[in-house]
Each structure stands twice: as C-alpha cells, then as structure tokens.
Design a protein around this nucleic acid. Sequence first.
DNA 1: ATGACATATGAGATATGA
Length: 260
Amino acid sequence: MKIATWNVNSIKARLENAVSWFREAKPDIACLQELKCEDSAFPTAAFEDLGYHCLVHGQKTYNGVAILSRMQPEDVRRGLPGDETDSQARYLEAVFSIPSGVVRVASLYLPNGNPVGTEKFAYKLAWMNRFENHVRHLLKLEEPCVLAGDYNVIPEARDARNPEAWLGDALYQPESRSKFRDLINLGLSDAIRQIHGDEAGLYTFWDYQAGAWQRNNGIRIDHLLLSPQAADLLADAQIMRDVRAQDRPSDHVPVMISIK
DNA sequence: ATGACATATGAGATATGA
C-alpha cells in the first residue's frame, strides 16, 4: 500500500509531469497540494483514466489540496476545524479501506508564514495550533492515520543544506520548529526519519532560483507524520528526488511511503 | 542584493511562494 504526498505547484501547469509520475510511481493514495485551481478546473478526467478517484478541495489562484486514490474515499472532511472564518483551502481528510483494515489520510498545506513578524506568520502559528488540536482528536481514534503534506517547516539543521541561510525565514523559526516538535511529541512518527534515521542530505524542495537544484541547495519540508498504529505498519519511505530533474518540474518532489 | 524563478490573473504589473 503506497501513500504519497506532493506539492505540485499548480496541477494545471504540472498535468503532463504529474500524469507521467502517477504512471511510473503507481501510488495507491496520493495527497497533492498547491493545486491553484477551483474544484471545477481540476483535471479529473486525466486521473480517472488512470484509475483514481479524485477528492478535491480547491481554491482559485492559491492553495488547494486533493487526495487521489484507487479506493473510494469515505468519511470526508474538508477544511481544518477550529476557525469558521478561515476560507483558505489547506486541509482535506478521508478514510480508505485497505487489506489490513482502514487508513485515515490527510492532505495538508501548512501556511508558509513569511515574512516573520507579520500577520502571515501569526496565521501560520495559529494554523499549527488548530492542527495540533485536531491531531489530538485523531489520535484518540487509535487507528492508522497518515498526515501527509507540505508542512512548510524545516524540522532540524540536518534538514537543510545551508541552515544558516534560513535563520530569518518562517520555515526555520524557533516557534515553527517548536510547534512541529509538539506534533512529534504527541506520538506521531516522521516516516522519513523512522526509515532513514539521522541521515543528512534528505531534501524535498529546491528553489527555482539561483541554481538551487544544481547546487543541491535543498530543504526537507514535505512530511508524512504517522499515528502509532500507522508507524507499526511502515515498511519504507522514499523521497523521489529524480522528479526535480524533469522538464518543467514542481519545486517540490513527491515523498512516498509503503505500509503493510 | 527589495535580486534570481515560476505561477495566476488577465492583458501590464502585481501577489505569492519558500
């Protein structure tokens, strides 16, 4: 059972690239972020042709998340609870039947938060607080749960090629990293770390600018956090970095796990 | 280095991203 997360940076601009990746990687469930389109503009037919159900929570121009799956989604939740005034499409959750039982999967696009010191950074921290509250609720269910997405947080220095360059950035602020650790301390497992230990040089994002890819100036900000019941099932986790070298790539690459 | 690069909107220049 393969579950992936990928910030595509516009599904319409990435369609050819994405279809090619789905054909080769064959994920059973794929969480996508930064669709940058409304539900009605999502290229549903292209993915249905590949055998996927398309669960889409879109928004014009910005944000937008989706879960594409071989199985029918059930018990769907659109949007992160905790603030009825928040209209940004950054959270989508559903339950899927799998051979070993069920798995709950969330596709999330955590706010970037730059520049630090503005209301954008306050929104990021508030969103992380709301997310933590929701995770507390999910953990009480005691079921396999995979929280996958673009967290926009560099957890540790080893998760950046040049950590000192990110000191003033919202992705590497002490508050952002502390809130991320709070999630881990609730009992969630970072799938890449569970499989790869303290290995350095594991990145999921390379900026389009200044030859970041060519210089391997990357950061690890796309994560799959697992409930204890999902962590027990984890068999593998890989960053698909070759995707960054393709024509017209997203600045993020897919991360895919395999669970029993 | 208030940059670079990519995308959406909309038809030029601006907002956003990380």
